[in-house]
Amino acid sequence: MIPYSTYLKKASVTASVTLKKVANPMSINMNDVYKIARLARLAITEQEAQAAQAQLTTIFNLIEQMQAVDTTGIQPMSHAQDATQRLREDRVSEIDQRELFQTLAPQVERNLYLVPPAIE
């Protein structure tokens, strides 16, 4: 017989979950935020950066719980079945749909995608 009552006793009234407190909380500083935003090619205002700093610090403190786990000798897992990448035959499978695809582009000229000059 299963002690459901034990489970029920353990269940708290609220649906919130308390997080384990991390001994040395890491914090992301404003320079980190600007650096990440630049790497991610996201324009960011000072106000947004300040909000991001607080939120990212909270999230990284959550993530930091991982560091307490001993994973010596464990193989990283990237696919559930540890399946390896299948190779396909090298054959022509797609027809030219340039016109259709370019109807979706923000700016096109003479069948070319237009971007601002990258080289002076």
Partner: peptide
Amino acid sequence: FAEGLSDDV
């Protein structure tokens, strides 16, 4: 069935 689960559920 530990902390964090609401009674109803």
